[in-house]
Write a protein that binds this DNA or RNA. Sequence first.
DNA 1: TTCTAGTTTAGAATTATTATAAACTAGAAA
DNA 2: TTTCTAGTTTATAATAATTCTAAACTAGAA
Lengths: 136, 136
Amino acid sequence: MNQKKEIANKLRTSGLRPTKQRILIAKNLFDRNKTFHFTIETLNKKINRKGKEQISLATIYNTVEAFINAGYLKEILTSKNKSYYDTNIRSHHHFYDEGSKELTDINYNQVKLSKVPIPPKGKKIKNLEVVIRIQK
Amino acid sequence: MNQKKEIANKLRTSGLRPTKQRILIAKNLFDRNKTFHFTIETLNKKINRKGKEQISLATIYNTVEAFINAGYLKEILTSKNKSYYDTNIRSHHHFYDEGSKELTDINYNQVKLSKVPIPPKGKKIKNLEVVIRIQK
DNA sequence: TTCTAGTTTAGAATTATTATAAACTAGAAA
DNA sequence: TTTCTAGTTTATAATAATTCTAAACTAGAA
Ligand SMILES: [Mn+2]
Ligand SMILES: [Mn+2]
Ligand SMILES: [Zn+2]
Ligand SMILES: [Zn+2]
């Protein structure tokens, strides 16, 4: 139960009140050894399976947004229908499987961009992470 | 008016009946000297401004889908909210301006990927086009 | 313990897209 | 040329993801 306190402190440092909903969601997201890629739908299912305490869908949305603003999560733009999120906030690349619709991490140094165009004047590159679409 | 016949023939070779709606949309999309990047919303506005003959939104959607299947258009996955389409069907890269929400072509040889990871076994790379997000 | 700003929630609203089914039409066949 | 029908268009409904609203709740400062 020290973990709960750790999470609570982390949230407080970001100006987020450590509510029981946020702590439960944070546990689900960050208490794991490898990267977790998810959509609101998959996170909601994981949190709200019967037997466990329920959290409203609106709170799932609100909390994911709050965690993104706090820098705990990153959004991965890969699909036109659905938002994907990533607990790995470092800069890195992805495989996106068009069949299973799942993301897999690619280490940043596994992709080498030896030539990158200069952006139009007045604009700068915000993000250069590659999504490689794969299929069977 | 020979143009109309050319478009009609092109459509027929793809098994698409050259209706007046499809011909008008094709004219708007392909009768231009540079790449056109658009969303359903922008195409719909361009087609259906007052004074011109109207085409229903459903037909805009249907026609864009038909043109993609025929290989006349390509879909660019860049935003989570909205589909983007491209009259440039060759393999190439893009800048996506997060401010104006507009795509710009990058020639294929302006980006050099000197290292690309091997996809998971049983999977192959479907597409490796880079979207570089830019902003002010 | 009290108080209030921040948070959660159910449900409504919005946006992009897809489905439905009736009316219309291109063009093959008569 | 006329007839016929599969393909197409259209208004509208339905769906899916997300955002908004406003009332009830609560963390934690005072
Ligand atoms: Mn959508
Ligand atoms: Mn959306
Ligand atoms: Zn990742
Ligand atoms: Zn393009």
